[in-house]
Design a protein around this nucleic acid. Structure first.
Length: 449
RNA sequence: GGAGAGGUCGCCUAGUGGCCUAGGGCGCCGCACUGGAAAUGCGGUAUGGGGCAACCCAUCGAGGGUUCAAAUCCCUCCCUCUCCGCCA
């Protein structure tokens, strides 16, 4: 169950349109409605038979307590009819279980309808909401520097891709990573390692001290129930590393353990919003992406990320999404990285999201936009699957919360963008001012200098 | 990893096949009493599903089984605690 039977019954047209906008089959809605009808009919029968049986059992108990012979004919008659009821109940319940399995199967394939303000269409219909910062060119005039760094007038220099910068500065080692683990498992060294640590610290500190998030340091593995909760299984099972021996999954994002913290829980009336910022390593098999982005650290099997996870009251979730995007943007601005914000169209946003923004940072060395954050509002879709609820008021009936999450931010691509944005004609790289207190150096120099 | 003890309503606890339709206490909410409060008394206080409703059904860590009937008996699993071993 993900979209909710009540809503399905109340506004099937909205759900049908939501499905077709996302390129899914709207007929599933009618299938689900029919199954729901059948289920309720059978359930009514089963429930009243159970009520009869309970009454009969009670009569047996009263008779025995009243001194009747438990094996005598008086009791035997009731027992026989109760047993007959039991058989009919068992048959009905078997049928109901079957119907419910079909219904759930159908419900799981009905996507979360997108918000009304989301553009309908494919990736081509994504909307660039805003762009910030100067888009540095790959080939730039050598300018302005005084003294030793100055170059002859009119000269140009070419910004290198981050992998070339990394090699000359010995910041990370992809071949040795491949030797000890496999390709796509980078080893960070020296200032590169320090930059990882500094970014994590900078992000977490900003979120906790300035933005009011509670910091979480989650396990890097989860059990199958948690993987199911956020929809990693069965949908994205191929993307995860699995420890079959212990039925554990390496987390592909902190979203999985952190959202599951409140699975099957009910928040008290005043508890929301609950906002977490969590660092975790992220493990992704990237099945099906072989041969794509093979150079550098744009697509790796293990990277680091600080994730924002929000549990909100339904009426606040729309504002919370905009706020969360702003928190991620703030980090990029402080790092001095040019970026753009994309509002994803219905066909490009995924099955479970109601609204999704991507943040892409400009990497002048490879002349590409790199996705470093994805911020989504799931509304009650994910909460329904995980049964995460809250009380609107003390003593009131529990209702589903709205969940949101977004990267704030993903490290590997941020590092790539920093190396390409802050490199200098002499091959060194300036440390962005925001990171200097965390790294303790102002500039990354080649080893041995 | 070995041995033992446990998992019951927000919390504590009673409960060894049928008056369990899960009792009691604490907490919480309402009402009464009060100038106001404390104390006291009375009532209420889980979640999901079905039904217009009265009401019915399900849930005592999870899942199976035995039985007319399971919190209670049997099987499997999960978790917590104590002791021992090992260990960053």
């Amino acid at each position: 169950m993900s979209v909710g039977l009540q809503r399905l019954r109340a506004e099937p047209d909205v759900i049908r349109k939501g499905a077709s906008d996302k390129g899914e089959d709207p007929a599933l809605v009618d299938l689900a409605l029919a199954l729901d009808e059948r289920r309720r009919a059978r359930l009514g029968e089963s429930d009243s038979l159970k009520a009869e049986r309970n009454a009969a059992s009670k009569r047996v108990g009263e008779a025995v307590r009243g001194g009747a012979d438990p094996a005598g004919p008086e009791v035997a008659g009731i027992r026989a009819s109760a047993a007959a009821l039991g058989e009919r109940i068992a048959a009905l319940d078997l049928e109901i279980t079957g119907i419910e399995a079909e219904l759930e199967e159908a419900m799981l394939r009905i996507p979360n309808p997108a918000d009304p303000d989301v553009p309908v269409g494919t990736a081509e219909d994504d909307v660039t909401v805003r762009t910030w910062g100067e888009l540095l060119p790959r080939v730039a005039p050598v300018e302005g520097e005084v003294g030793a760094d100055a170059a002859p007038g009119g000269a140009t220099w070419v910004r290198l891709p981050h992998w070339d910068v990394a090699e000359s500065l010995a910041i990370f080692e992809l071949e040795r990573g491949a030797k000890i683990a496999g390709s796509g498992f980078p080893v960070y060294r020296g200032a590169g390692a320090a930059m990882q640590r500094a970014l994590i610290d900078f992000f977490l500190r900003t979120h906790t001290v300035e933005n009011g998030f509670t910091e979480i340091w989650p396990p890097a593995v989860v059990n199958s129930a948690s993987a199911r909760g956020t929809g990693q299984i069965p949908d994205k099972e191929d993307q995860m590393y699995v420890v079959t021996r212990d039925d554990l999954y390496l987390v592909p994002t902190a979203e999985v353990p952190v959202t599951n913290l409140h699975r099957d829980e009910i928040f008290d009336a005043g508890a929301l919003p609950v906002r977490y910022a969590a660092y975790s390593p992220c493990f992704r098999r990237e099945a099906g992406a072989a041969g794509k982005d093979t150079r550098g650290i744009l697509r790796v099997h293990q990277f680091d990320k600080v994730e924002m996870v929000l549990f909100e009251r339904p009426e606040e979730s729309s504002d919370a999404l905009e706020w969360m995007v702003g928190r991620a943007e703030d980090l990029l601005r402080r790092l001095g990285l040019a970026y753009r914000v994309l509002l994803m169209a219905t066909g490009d946003m995924g099955f479970v999201q109601a609204k999704k923004y991507d943040l892409e940072v400009w990497a002048p060395g490879v002349e590409r936009w790199l996705e470093v954050s994805s911020c989504s509002n799931f509304r009650d879709y994910q909460a329904r699957r995980m049964q995460i609820r809250y009380r609107p008021a003390p003593g009131a009936k529990p209702e589903l919360v709205h969940t949101l999450n977004g990267s704030g931010l993903a490290l590997a691509r941020v590092v790539a963008a920093i190396l390409e944005t802050y490199q200098r004609p002499d091959g060194t790289v300036d440390v962005p001012a925001a990171l200097r207190p965390f790294m303790g150096i102002d500039r990354i120099l080649p080893p041995g200098t």
